[in-house]
Nucleic acid binder design. Structure first.
Length: 282
DNA sequence: CTGTTCGCGTCAGTTACATCA
DNA sequence: CTTGATGTAACTGACGCGAAC
């Protein structure tokens, strides 16, 4: 679930650059969100992701991870590859995977010496300590990806295995992307709502103009609604309305001309009110 | 130069587990 | 104590890219 306040907490930038978005911004539909945009990767995320440990105070200062005394050894043997099947240690995965023999061999050499302590080979869920998470967060703010050197340095600093650092950054990137997607969705949702409202308003205006057309005695004293000039797709309307004004004031006094902007509105059938008019789908 | 293979990094999706209400 | 929801560490398979051949 996404809450609106999350925008500020996340400090995420809204990277939407579609024409619809720009129109929405020109209409000043979402000033607050526009004003709060900032660079994505440099955004302060501590409020969001730094609370995981705070809600569980009993974990504070408790390093639930084993001290990987073999970090260096593992690194010397090569940085673990995230997609390597050698990293599989899941007990349940062996249930799903019929090729258990291979897994046995793979497991034996997958996690290095540091995993000998596991014994049963079952995957252990290890919570990172608050300090470890904080350092990782700080590092992520600087670079959301790590080169092998940085990974190794972080692992050493945090007393973690490089693979853990790698996984943490992977998951962190995934969470970042997810949050960004949520924010984008919320933004588009608001745009949709505002455009729908704008559409409704314009429809109402069209009806009023039609009523004016049927009441010519009032027409001469009417000026075109200023709001029509705001419509980005009605350039012709704005120009012709000006020309019509000069025309009516100078020459045509007795007849009842129907200005093009009014005629167009009167002749064209009212477009259906759609929630979100996507040009690509037609 | 072109095509193939290999190693590596990343991502999307998923699973497993810890924790809380 | 049990249970469902939630957060997240860890895993899998796929893909892209560059280097070596």
């Amino acid at each position: 679930m996404l809450v609106v306040e999350r925008d500020d907490d996340l400090g995420l930038s809204l990277s939407l650059s579609s024409s619809e978005t720009r129109n929405a911004l020109q209409l000043n539909l979402m000033p607050s969100m526009v004003a709060s945009s900032s660079h994505f990767q440099k955004s302060p995320w501590n409020d969001v992701f730094g609370t995981s440990g705070e809600t569980r105070p009993f974990l504070r200062g408790i390093d639930v991870n084993r001290a990987p005394s073999t970090v260096d050894v593992e690194e010397e043997a090569g940085v673990s590859s995230p997609n390597s099947t050698l990293s599989s240690i899941s007990g349940k995965r062996s249930e799903r995977d019929p090729t258990g023999e291979e897994n046995e061999v793979e497991r034996a050499c997958s996690r290095g010496l540091s995993d000998e302590e596991d014994g049963d080979g079952s995957r252990k869920k290890l919570r990172l300590s608050k300090d470890q998470s904080a350092v990782l967060e700080e590092s992520f703010k600087e670079h959301n990806t790590l080169n092998p050197k940085q990974k190794l340095a972080l692992a050493k600093q945090l007393n973690l295995r490089p693979r853990q650092v790698e996984v943490w950054f992977q998951n962190r990137r995934a969470r970042t992307k997810l949050k960004q997607t949520e924010v984008d969705c919320e933004f588009l949702k608001r745009c949709c709502e505002n455009l729908t409202e704008e559409n409704r308003r314009l429809q109402k205006e069209v009806q009023e103009l039609r009523a004016l057309k049927l009441s010519p005695q009032f027409y001469m004293h009417m000026t075109p609604p200023t709001t029509l000039t705001m419509c980005p797709s009605c350039e012709r309307v704005a120009l012709s309305s000006h020309a019509t004004n000069t025309n009516t004031t100078t020459t045509q006094t007795s007849s009842i001309p129907i200005p093009p902007w009014a005629a167009a509105a009167a002749s064209a059938p009212p477009p259906p009110i759609r929630a979100f008019d996507t040009p690509s789908r037609r």
